[in-house]
Simulated scan of single mutants.
Amino acid sequence: MRVIKGMDALGYDPNASVENLGSQKSITIGVIVPDIDINVFTFTDFIKGVERASQMYNFNILICAASNNIDKEMKYLELLRTHTVDAMILLHPTIKNDKIIQLNDEGYHVVVVGSVIEHACIPCCITNNLEFSQRVVTHFAEQGHREIAFINGSLSTSESMDRLEGYIQGLKVNRLPFYPELIEHGDYNEEKGYQAFIRLINKTPRPTAIYTANDEMALGVYKACKELGLRIPEDISVMGVDDNRIGRYIEPPLSSVKPPNTELGYLAAEMIMCLVNKKDINNRIVTIESTMLFRKSSMKFV
């Protein structure tokens, strides 16, 4: 299991923590998540991982939905200063890194998921966004595509920037032309993914493959293709990210990248318990690989 590898990377003995629980006060861990409505499956799986860890380490969870709002995130972080929570997990935070560093320097326990904070004492767990984005482009290239478009999410997150960089590197590695006009932004939601595709399909060169930074936006592409009479994958190939359950059952089934959300949640909780119990963390930054799932929506183009 990838979680066990993550535990090994931390150099943390869970049994030692469990043995000490009897003498500790009840611990509450806050989890700040962005927009639950958009990526409900992603966040459900992530919280599932945190919840599994809570059963092992006997801590309470307080979920804080920030709705991609910086002011809300800052408000929830104040729960550390008021001692409402003992530590905080930040999933894809939008606040500036210096605010997170300030909390750490004040002695509060924070773990970041989805991005890396350049600070020796702030643990971070991520997936390989750059690498798997490059692999998506390579997959399309192997199917015969040359004009590959990318619908990104929000440029306010390092996750989006990494996926964009991976897309560009994928074009370079496969010696494919880079057209800046074939990059659009869909803010991680279906309707804006739909609008982004409508803009892309009317551009020159016209793309034959679309990589969307999440499956929600890919569903918007499907909707637009149906309205325009475009066949997937005969006229346009599509691949997303998240392995949204809906994507498995639409026709044709959506190719996707499955991030290790449950494992990341579990690992983040382990990191938090290391901090709370003053245990050393051997590796401050831990990467867990995502899984490529190729289905009919990205079948051969030639």
Rank of each mutant, 00 (worst) to 15 (best):
Y108F: 11
H119Y: 13
L130A: 09
Q102V: 01
I122E: 09
Q102S: 14
H119M: 08
V112P: 07
I126D: 09
V112W: 12
V112Q: 12
I117T: 03
I101Y: 07
D98I: 05
D98K: 10
I122D: 07
L130G: 02
N97G: 10
L103H: 04
H119A: 04
L130T: 11
N129F: 07
A120G: 05
C125A: 06
G114Q: 06
N97Y: 05
G114Y: 07
V113H: 06
E131A: 13
C121F: 14
D105T: 10
Q102R: 14
S115W: 00
R135G: 00
G114I: 10
F132M: 12
E106A: 05
Y108M: 04
D98V: 02
Y108R: 05
T127I: 03
P123M: 04
E106Y: 11
F132S: 12
H109A: 14
I100V: 12
I126T: 12
S115G: 00
N129K: 11
E118G: 10
Q102I: 05
G114K: 01
Q102D: 14
V136T: 07
I126M: 07
I100P: 11
I101G: 03
N104K: 14
I122C: 08
N128P: 04
K96L: 13
Y108A: 05
V112N: 02
N128S: 11
V113G: 08
A120Q: 14
S133H: 09
C125H: 12
Y108Q: 00
L130M: 12
D105V: 12
T127L: 08
R135L: 11
C125W: 05
S115N: 08
D105C: 13
D105F: 08
L103C: 09
